[in-house]
C-alpha cells in the first residue's frame, strides 16, 4: 500500500508538467500517460489552445503558429507562455484574452498567460500543418529553416495558387506586420507571403 503522504507527493510531482510544446510531444504525452489527473487535463487544454486562432489569419491556431512556447500545469494553476510573432503585433492582447477564455471554457480558471521572448518566435516555428493551412488560405508559407534573423530577400516565393516560381517581390510590407506582397507572372495576380523572420 502506498501511504497517503506518498500519494500526495506523487500527485504533486506529476502535476508539475512542463509540456514543452514542441506540440507533437505534448500530444503524445497526453495520450501515453493517462491515469493522473494532469494527464487527463492535458488533452482538453491542448484542444482549447488549438481553438484559439490568430485574429489576422483566422484559419491558423496559435499552436499551428508555434506561438505557444510552454504550458506549465501545477495543481489548479496553468501558466501559458506565448511567444509573439512580432513584438509590435496588435493582436497579442486579444490572443492573451482568448487563451484565458478558451481555457476557462474547459474548466481551467486559474490561468496566467505570459508574453515571452524566450524562445524567440521565428517563422521556423510554424508547424507543417500550419504551413499547409496558410497555403490553403492563399498566403504563401515561409520556407523551412529560413528564419532566425537570416538576411535573405524573399524573392521567387512559390505562388500559393498555382505553385509557379515565376513570381516577384512587390512590397516587403503588407496588410499585417507578418506579410509581404508578391506578384505571380503565371496567374497574373498578387499574393501575400508570410515573412520568414
Amino acid at each position: 500500500m502506498v501511504s497517503e503522504t506518498q500519494k500526495r507527493r506523487n500527485r504533486t510531482a506529476t502535476r508539475i508538467v512542463d509540456c514543452r510544446l514542441s506540440i507533437v510531444d505534448c500530444r503524445l504525452d497526453a495520450g501515453a500517460a493517462g491515469g493522473s489527473s494532469v494527464a487527463n487535463r492535458k488533452s482538453p487544454i491542448l484542444r482549447a489552445l488549438e481553438s484559439v486562432t490568430d485574429p489576422e489569419i483566422p484559419v491558423l491556431s496559435i499552436v499551428d503558429m508555434g506561438m505557444v512556447a510552454h504550458v506549465r500545469i501545477e495543481r489548479e494553476k496553468i501558466a501559458v507562455d506565448i511567444t509573439p510573432t512580432f513584438v509590435g503585433c496588435p493582436a497579442v492582447g486579444l490572443i492573451r484574452e482568448s487563451v484565458a477564455a478558451a481555457l476557462a471554457a474547459v474548466g481551467e480558471t486559474d490561468v496566467t498567460v505570459n508574453i515571452v521572448f524566450d524562445p524567440p518566435w521565428t517563422s521556423d516555428r510554424i508547424t507543417p500543418a500550419g504551413r499547409e493551412k496558410l497555403r490553403e488560405f492563399g498566403v504563401a508559407p515561409p520556407g523551412p529553416r529560413c528564419g532566425a534573423g537570416q538576411l535573405t530577400e524573399p524573392t521567387h516565393v512559390p505562388c500559393p495558387f498555382c505553385g509557379s516560381l515565376v513570381t516577384e517581390l512587390e512590397s516587403l510590407f503588407g496588410p499585417t506586420l507578418c506579410r509581404s506582397i508578391h506578384y505571380c507572372h503565371r496567374c497574373l495576380q498578387s499574393f501575400e507571403h508570410f515573412k520568414p523572420v
Binding site: 512580432f86 513584438v87 521572448f117 524567440p120 518566435w121 521565428t122 528564419g147 532566425a148 534573423g149 537570416q150 538576411l151 530577400e153 516587403l172 510590407f173 506586420l177 509581404s180 515573412k195 523572420v197
Partner: peptide
C-alpha cells in the same frame, strides 16, 4: 534576438 529578425526588413527596404 527577436527584434533583429524584424529589423532586417526595415534595412532591406
Amino acid at each position: 534576438t527577436k527584434l533583429r529578425g524584424e529589423e532586417k526588413y526595415h534595412l532591406m527596404h
